[in-house]
């Protein structure tokens, strides 16, 4: 590549960053496979990795976790009445009270139907969770929690499939610190994000259980000795 095209590419990248900032434009919709409207992804809980805030998805996810929960809405291009949503196979993708849940690994279409007529559909797939990635407050992947002072640290879990893809859908998390004399959770143990506070010098692990998968994150605590106050005898 010559210098001029590299220069132009850099200019375009810098301009894009200035225009959009660090947040890329989000679009939680995707066209139906018959191109008669768009499906919109709706979050049903804060534990969905696709949802930044409680009900705000940034994209329409491609792949879901087994047991992942979500909702969708279909906006038809013809401006007619909103079609009802139903899964192609309730055994793979169940539907109750407007919430879709992947019951097992596989593919199922979501259907947008009016009576016996189908307006559009879109196929979605679910994969089992085979790993959990831990991320610190700056969204960087971490392989251990290291404490050198008593301040708590926050982290989040990202469920991954066997190809390293984040898996969408709200999930039930269960966290615990293996040795609670070394560190403890200072937030709810059932969210996707937790905060851990060190208690004493030592080594333990943080355990998270999600979608039938259990992952451990080592915790290393090396706290400075307590400062001696004037008048202490020891």
């Amino acid at each position: 590549m010559t210098k001029a095209p590299v220069h132009r590419l850099a200019t375009v990248l810098v301009s894009s960053l200035l225009l959009f900032g660090c947040d890329l434009p989000s679009d939680p919709t995707v066209a139906g496979e018959l191109n008669r409207g768009r499906f919109e992804y709706l979050c049903v809980g804060e534990t969905d990795v696709s949802c930044r805030d409680f009900d705000m998805a940034s994209i329409f996810p491609e792949v879901f976790a087994v047991s992942g929960r979500f909702s969708v809405r279909f906006e038809p291009f013809d401006g007619g009445p909103l079609p009802r949503i139903e899964p192609a196979s309730p055994r793979v993708l169940s539907y109750e009270s407007a919430i879709l849940t992947f019951e097992r690994e596989g593919t199922s279409a979501i259907l947008a139907a009016r009576g016996d007529a189908l307006v559009d559909y879109r196929h979605l797939s679910a994969r089992p969770i085979v790993a959990v990635q831990f991320r610190n407050g700056s969204a960087e992947s971490i392989s251990a929690l290291v404490f050198e002072d008593p301040a708590p640290l926050g982290l989040s879990a990202v469920p991954l499939d066997d190809r390293g893809r984040p898996l969408a859908g709200a999930l039930s998390y269960q966290w615990r610190v293996v040795d609670e004399s070394i560190a403890r959770l200072v937030t709810s143990a059932t969210g996707r994000e937790v905060s851990v506070q060190p208690l004493s010098t030592g080594t333990t692990a943080l355990e998270v259980s999600v979608g039938g998968h259990v992952e451990l994150l080592p915790i290393f605590v090396e706290l400075p000795p307590p400062e001696r106050m004037p008048g202490d005898t020891q």
Binding site: P87, S89, S108, H123
Partner: peptide
């Protein structure tokens, strides 16, 4: 057709 598939 496989379970879960829609085909026009």
């Amino acid at each position: 057709i496989p379970e879960g598939r829609a085909i026009r």
